[in-house]
Simulated assay, not measured.
Amino acid sequence: MKKNEFYEWLKENTNLMESSIRTYFYAIEKFLKEVKELNIEEINKFISENFRNKRNYHYKYAIKKYLEFIKREDIIPKLVKVKISPRKKVGHYYDKETILKIIDGMNYYKIVALIQYITGARAKEVLSFNRNKLIKETNGIRLILEAKGGKETGVYIPNPYAEKVLQVIESRKKEYPFLKGSSNNFTTLLNNNYRYYLNELKKSVEKLGIEFNTHDFRRNFARMIYNISGKKISVVKAALRHSKFTSTERYIGELVSKEELDKLVENIFT
């Protein structure tokens, strides 16, 4: 593979953000090292093994783009369909005071936790924020984050929290102000910081004697939006930036009974 050519092709022919382009690029480097012959059997074996063992969903998407790059689109329809059932995770819900105590007990990644709590964004979406993707608005700021699939999504942070976020961003003179350390591989850098973030959050939570994980910020955000909107699933869907109602229902299902959920769905679709 002519590395620079594929990298430039991704930049010119896709709407992926820079971090996703790097992720795809390094995924294909690994792919070409392990797959000696470019035939469907070897490709599908690689996809199946990586999905099963590492849950690296981006590999299949990267391979599709690579096949387009080398003009072998004929292989794409033959790629194996691999689906991993998500693990059932139990959400932990607390009042505003408790969640703010969790955040206050953190250090370097305190600002990441705060942004998650205010916006409902996923941890890695916040961690990979690029300082050039910030828009100042009348009563706050909007951060343009990279969501699933490499798509850009904007999250709004009102004052006075916006002022705290701006202060941190301006004090850290880095392209990615929420990451620390360095690596030639952006995916490695992001994953390392995610682990650091998990450890810092874990220490804060243990001091309070409760259970809480990074995705619980998103769950609690969904609950707050759900309650303040008058229990409107459509509002929660928009707030969580979901493309399908079925994704939102998984969050709402933890907050209401099956009967209440059925009634809400009826109100939307009938």
Rank of each mutant, 00 (worst) to 15 (best):
residue 2 K to S: 04
residue 5 E to L: 13
residue 7 Y to K: 15
residue 7 Y to S: 12
residue 10 L to D: 14
residue 14 T to N: 10
residue 27 A to W: 09
residue 31 F to K: 03
residue 34 E to N: 11
residue 44 N to M: 08
residue 52 R to A: 14
residue 59 Y to K: 06
residue 61 Y to G: 07
residue 69 F to M: 13
residue 71 K to T: 03
residue 79 L to Q: 09
residue 83 K to H: 09
residue 92 H to G: 05
residue 93 Y to T: 05
residue 97 E to V: 04
residue 101 K to A: 00
residue 109 Y to F: 15
residue 118 I to D: 04
residue 120 G to S: 03
residue 124 K to R: 15
residue 127 L to W: 13
residue 130 N to T: 10
residue 131 R to M: 15
residue 135 I to N: 02
residue 136 K to P: 01
residue 140 G to P: 08
residue 141 I to F: 02
residue 142 R to M: 13
residue 144 I to K: 06
residue 144 I to L: 11
residue 144 I to A: 09
residue 145 L to N: 01
residue 146 E to L: 01
residue 147 A to G: 02
residue 151 K to W: 00
residue 153 T to Y: 04
residue 154 G to R: 03
residue 156 Y to F: 01
residue 157 I to S: 05
residue 165 V to S: 00
residue 168 V to N: 04
residue 174 K to F: 02
residue 174 K to L: 15
residue 177 P to G: 00
residue 178 F to G: 09
residue 183 S to P: 01
residue 187 T to H: 12
residue 189 L to F: 14
residue 190 L to I: 13
residue 198 L to W: 01
residue 208 L to S: 10
residue 213 N to E: 02
residue 217 F to D: 07
residue 219 R to T: 07
residue 224 M to L: 08
residue 225 I to N: 05
residue 228 I to A: 04
residue 232 K to G: 06
residue 238 A to P: 01
residue 243 S to W: 03
residue 249 E to T: 04
residue 249 E to S: 09
residue 259 E to A: 05
residue 260 E to L: 00
residue 263 K to C: 09
